[in-house]
């Protein structure tokens, strides 16, 4: 059952991500996704909420081919990624940025190397000076240019998230997937990250899926919110609609 709330505002009609009937199970008795349908338009920020273990992260991992879907169609930029070979999938992956829950910075590299690592491999014509400029620009966009020579172990949780975001931004992705961007951060830093997500979307008109438990982040960043329950999309609507939902379980997220 989908609790479809009224007045859903989509920023644009053109669909960038279109997931239909997505199924995924881990082992025989562990069905995580049981027919998820998600549609995200160009320039839209979609927030997905749900209880821990409801399959939110698995959904976006299926979207980039990190987890193989059992069944279903995952169209990104109009191409069904479940039917692509590795090289074709990589061509799509370059256009998608993924911010991991713990930022997943490469421990053995400095911040500069972390940022230049994907750039050097995908933009081979760039000179060292151009790469350096791109790295500095990406760091400036997250307000952390002074951390350029630091190792990830020297950074705080919020800084790691921001550097992770800078590394995602350096390839100018058209879609950004955020896996719990504010988890484990204090309220002020969470707000900063949420503002940053919004600023990036406004600046580059990127399409985003944000997975979060942080309702303040959901309210600030989400154009539309989906609630995942028992492997399906249980409810969908704007923050305001869902907050006043007739379904008690949905409302419980907003308390």
């Amino acid at each position: 059952m989908i609790v479809q709330e009224k007045n859903i505002t989509k920023k644009s009609g053109e669909s960038v991500i279109d997931i239909k009937g997505l199924y995924k199970s881990f082992g025989e008795h562990n069905d995580v996704l049981k027919g998820v349908d998600i549609n995200v338009g160009q320039g839209e920020n979609l927030v997905i909420i749900g209880k821990s273990g409801s399959g939110k992260s698995v959904t976006i991992k299926c979207l980039v081919g990190l987890v193989e879907a059992d069944k279903g169609e995952i169209k990104v930029f109009g191409t069904d990624i479940t039917k692509l070979n590795n090289a074709e999938l990589n061509a799509i992956r370059i256009r998608i940025g993924f911010l991991f829950q713990n930022a997943a910075l490469y421990d053995s590299m400095t911040v500069r190397e972390n940022l230049s690592f994907p750039l050097k491999r995908h933009s081979k014509k760039l000179s060292s000076a151009e790469i350096e400029t791109a790295v500095v620009e990406a760091l400036e966009s997250v307000g952390l240019e002074e951390a350029i020579d630091k190792m990830p172990s020297e950074l705080s949780g919020g800084m790691r998230k921001r550097i992770g975001l800078a590394r995602t931004l350096i390839l100018n992705p058209e879609i950004i997937l955020y896996d719990e961007p504010t988890t484990g951060l204090d309220t002020i830093t969470s707000k900063e990250i949420s503002d940053l997500i919004l600023a990036i979307q406004n600046k580059n008109n990127t399409t985003s899926i944000i997975i979060t438990h942080d309702m303040a982040c959901a309210k600030l960043t989400g154009d539309r919110i989906m609630v995942l329950k028992d492997g399906v999309i249980y409810a969908e609507g704007t923050y305001e609609n869902l907050e006043k939902s007739e379904d008690e379980w949905v409302r419980s997220f907003f308390v």
Binding site: A91, R93, A104, Y106
Partner: peptide
């Protein structure tokens, strides 16, 4: 464990 290998994979590396 810290998803660094996944991060490489999603950056098409």
């Amino acid at each position: 464990v810290t998803e660094q290998i996944d991060a490489m994979e999603v950056s098409a590396i």
